[in-house]
């Protein structure tokens, strides 16, 4: 299990991670979302022992990670900005990995190279962006990690490869109880893959929740009344968003769906529809509630 307590990391006075605490259970696929610069990559780098936290602690299986090869040998990290030795091929990288990861599985490496149709003797520098990511994922999973950290997991991968990578990850989780921590801006992908989701914003952990809970605890309400009304009519609801067009209002609210529905019906609306939200909508509205909102209309003013 990964246990994070009061984690804080500062770069030149800027708090990239601010007092984050969480627990990631074993065998779980833990997704992390957040705006650009929210601290996801920094968080992963602290979890993998690359960065040392300024305050707080990270422990994996009860042991600290930083400068701890015993823990690191069971971990593999695929960062957003990939690294391969200059002019190296995957075979060359295999030697590197095999030299430092004692669990490196050469057979699995060879198998995955053929499964992903990558030529291991070709220089990685000739690979496309997606192929490089595939190569990095193959190398990482060939170390047979107990903990797999994937930053911007599906960046550059085509839909077929995304599916293949998802299957590969899920297989490891299923067969070897691998714990996977992944970040992605593709909420659709995370929605399909993850058991748990965490939202980071400005270095802080806004929430973490099971995917199922998350989707049921936040929902969209379309409501209209015969008489005139405004936002104040919904005081007492945990609203993330309110917009009104004519007499119909769109409300994003949090809470127990049955309870909310009961209360709204009690207000005798002319129209009442309660709709589920996609994960992307959940993310957008949660971020909006935190003030992370950009008016797309501003782009229309360009050139005026």
């Amino acid at each position: 299990m990964i246990s994070v307590e009061g984690l804080t990391k500062t770069f030149d006075g800027y708090k990239a991670i601010d007092n984050v605490s969480c627990k990631i259970p074993e065998g779980c696929i833990y997704g992390m979302v957040g705006s650009n610069g929210a601290g996801k990559s920094t968080f992963l780098r602290i979890l993998t022992g690359i960065y040392k936290a300024d305050a707080g602690s990270v422990s994996i299986d009860g042991k600290p990670v930083y400068e701890n090869p015993d823990i690191k040998k069971n971990m593999a990290f695929v960062p957003d900005d990939l690294y391969f030795v200059n002019n190296s091929s995957m075979n060359r990288m295999k030697k590197f990995y095999a030299g430092v990861y004692e669990n490196f599985d050469r057979k699995r490496f060879d198998f995955l190279c053929s499964a992903f149709k990558l030529d291991p003797s070709k220089s990685v520098s000739t690979f496309s962006k997606g192929m490089r990511r595939q190569a990095a994922i193959i190398l990482a999973v060939s170390t047979r990690p107990k903990y797999l950290f994937l930053d911007e997991t599906f960046d550059g991968l085509d839909p077929v490869m995304r599916s293949l990578v998802k299957s590969l990850v899920c297989k490891d989780v299923e067969e070897r109880k691998t714990t996977v921590i992944m970040t992605s801006h593709s909420l659709r992908e995370l929605e399909d893959t993850c058991d748990q989701l965490a939202l980071l914003h400005k270095g802080g952990l806004i929430f973490e929740s099971d995917i199922a809970n998350l989707k049921t605890s936040l929902f969209k309400v379309q409501i209209a009344f015969v008489e005139a009304y405004d936002k104040s009519r919904f005081e007492g609801f945990d609203m993330l968003h309110f917009s009104k067009s004519g007499s119909v209002s769109n409300i994003i609210t949090r809470g127990d769906r049955a309870e909310v529905e009961e209360r709204l019906k009690g207000m005798r609306p002319a129209i009442l529809d309660i709709l589920p939200l996609s994960l992307e909508e959940v993310f957008t509205y949660e971020m909006e509630a935190l003030g992370y909102v950009f008016d797309t209309g501003i782009l229309e003013k360009e050139g005026e």
Partner: peptide, 18 residues
């Protein structure tokens, strides 16, 4: 490798102490 973020991170992620 110490002069590039990605390479430096890579080396510090592997199970070898500094």
């Amino acid at each position: 490798f110490l002069n590039k973020r990605n390479s430096c991170d890579f080396y510090h992620a592997i199970p070898v102490k500094r």
